[in-house]
Design a protein around this nucleic acid. Structure first.
Lengths: 143, 143
DNA sequence: CTGCTTGCAAAAAGTTTGCAAGGCA
DNA sequence: TGCCTTGCAAACTTTTTGCAAGCAG
């Protein structure tokens, strides 16, 4: 009944695809989680409703990404993390020591994206970008 | 007999590790290949000499990275790629359409790394950075 | 009804690990 | 000789795929 619901249905239909409970559940889970791996999405869905198969999660995340409703980034050397595309485009900072993840707006990158476009004829996909590094003074939880 | 050889041996010894033919072969393969996945490194080593085990490749790349002789970046959503650290630090541009990979010096990022340090107290690991996007006019091999 | 979707199970891809034999220093 | 390294095989994690049954439109 929400606007998201209607939006998802129409986006799917425009591509000749169908609205299923699984697809609604998975999109809702991604929304709630913020940044989550397919595995975490699966666990979240199962917690809020009936069981869904892992392969359905993979296939659905792929569909949702093609529709532009979610995006993924690589916030670790392991599994990718998906997030919903409700907010503005942003990229991520990841601290290798404390694991802190910060979202940063595209403005910060402007000088770089401009130069890459002019000098390398290259258009940056800002939303997929993950910048690894370390906090100057970090909580030092991990590593 | 090369300087690399001596350098590798001494670096290993400084950490209480040993120089083995496998470690020389794997480092040499990474040097020749430029950017290569563990799998590609394995194939290259086998082509130039006797068989080496896959697990040895993984273990050796890990050791070489700890010693600072190689680095890895994620140039695809699949396996990581390793490159030797002979040249200056650089980051990578990857075109999703044609697969082109371009190495870019750290200067390009200066404005961003400066701002992230000042505004987010975050020090960027430039060498690990991979920037995905598309060439303005690309050969259009893949996708 | 039509054919897109799902669940299931198996396969694939990439990586890790335990352990005994081997070899560098 | 000591113990770091390797090979081998098995286990593991994450993702993909084929196929028949299920369900949205």
């Amino acid at each position: 009944m929400s606007h998201e619901h209607v939006d998802l249905r129409s986006r799917l239909r425009d591509s000749g695809l169908r609205l299923t409970p699984q697809r609604e559940l998975i999109l809702a889970a991604v929304d709630r989680l913020g940044h989550a791996t397919p595995d975490e999405v699966l666990a979240e869905v199962r917690q809020h409703s009936s069981a869904v198969n892992a392969s359905t999660v993979y296939r659905t995340l792929e569909v949702l990404e093609e529709l532009g409703l979610v995006r993924h980034a690589h916030l670790s050397d392991r599994a990718p993390t998906y997030h919903s595309v409700t907010d503005h485009e942003h990229f991520h900072l990841v601290c290798r020591n404390c694991g802190r993840i910060v979202s940063v707006g595209p403005d910060m990158l402007q000088p770089v994206t401009d130069r890459l476009r002019d000098e390398q004829a290259f258009v940056v996909d800002v939303g997929h970008l993950t910048v690894f590094g370390t906090c100057v003074e970090c909580p030092g939880e991990q590593a």
